[in-house]
């Protein structure tokens, strides 16, 4: 039935799947960063992405600022928001049972969603990007620059984060705090402040993901539901592994797009979760599960 599908379409799907997967991967990265540092699973990560996209929308469309300046401002504003969220709310429930942190972050997500529809309205919005109009044609394969921009941005962001964690003082302190909080305290690392900066960092990453997502799927207050798929991506990657999160995200993006075209109707939305279940059955620690157990 699908025998006539061409190579060109395959390549196009590949690029689009990679791009969508990168977005999932970046949101999953936010999950993992916060989880590794503070043992908190932030179920509002998808909503942070949505909020970031809306803040960027305000700067770029409503205030008419330059795209890049608007993006940078949105990242800064959202990073401050993420940090404050930790200082004002999340920090207070550290030491309480896991269940209460789950309820808290789900609640925060609901608040962000309704807050967004109060401020920006429930309708869907578009966010123009400088790559919108550009289309590349290579060997008969039509590629939109928007998708390629997502791939490049994600790659750059990963390199940046890798360098940040390996070579900067704050990055090293973040790693230390996530591996052994007690020892980090004993080294004179202000652990509470470090945790807040992790929240800021992951809110910033989520904002970039949101702004990149906007041109390909428009934004509305329910865009944050992507968080669920990103969560699946993080689990597939072995919750706690940063490369795992990105790879898991890309995997889910590819599976989603390919199953939408090559498999019967309805598989597009469930394929990701089928893969999630399969991974959990075959390899419960995830694809990149940590080798050693972390001491708390």
């Amino acid at each position: 039935m699908h025998g006539g599908r061409s190579m060109a379409e395959f390549l196009q799907l590949l690029v689009n799947g990679l791009a969508v997967g990168c977005i999932y991967g970046l949101v999953a990265l936010g999950f993992v960063l916060i989880y590794k540092a503070g043992e908190v699973v932030n179920f509002a990560q998808g909503e942070m992405m949505m909020l970031g996209a809306f803040v960027a929308f305000t700067f770029i469309v409503q205030f008419g600022l330059n795209y890049w300046i608007g993006l940078a401002l949105a990242v800064v504003v959202m990073a401050a928001f993420g940090g404050l969220l930790d200082i004002v709310v999340v920090r207070r429930i550290i030491g309480q049972p896991q269940f209460s942190t789950v309820m808290l972050t789900i609640g925060l997500g609901v608040m962000m969603r309704s807050g967004a529809s109060m401020v920006w309205g429930p309708e869907t919005r578009g966010l123009p990007s400088p790559f919108d109009k550009t289309v590349l044609q290579i060997d008969g394969v039509v590629l939109s620059a928007v998708y390629l921009a997502i791939l490049v941005t994600t790659a750059l962001l990963c390199v940046f984060l890798l360098g940040f964690f390996r070579f900067t003082r704050v990055g090293l302190a973040m790693q230390a705090a996530s591996q052994n909080q007690l020892a980090a305290y004993c080294m004179g690392i202000p652990v509470k402040r470090v945790l807040s900066s992790v929240w800021a960092l992951s809110a910033g990453v989520a904002t970039i993901a949101g702004v990149m997502l906007a041109p390909i799927s428009l934004i509305d207050p329910n865009t944050g539901a992507i968080g669920l798929k990103a969560f699946a991506a993080a689990v597939i990657g072995g919750f706690g592994s940063i490369p795992g999160a990105v790879v898991g995200g890309i995997l889910i993006g590819l599976i989603e797009l390919f199953s939408g075209v090559y498999l019967p109707e309805g598989f597009k939305d469930t394929a990701a979760y089928i893969v999630l279940l399969a991974v959990l059955v075959v390899r419960p620690q995830g694809l990149f599960g940590a080798v050693g157990r972390k001491k708390v």
């Binding site: 790693q175 591996q179 052994n180 020892a183 305290y185 004993c186 972390k294």
Partner: peptide, 24 residues
């Protein structure tokens, strides 16, 4: 005092069971 401030005053603890950063 918070532990990170005590360290800054010049008191370092070598905790029981080493407590290293295992992946660093």
């Amino acid at each position: 005092m918070d532990p990170d401030r005590v360290v800054r005053l010049g008191i370092s603890l070598v905790p029981e069971g080493r407590e290293l950063f295992p992946f660093l």
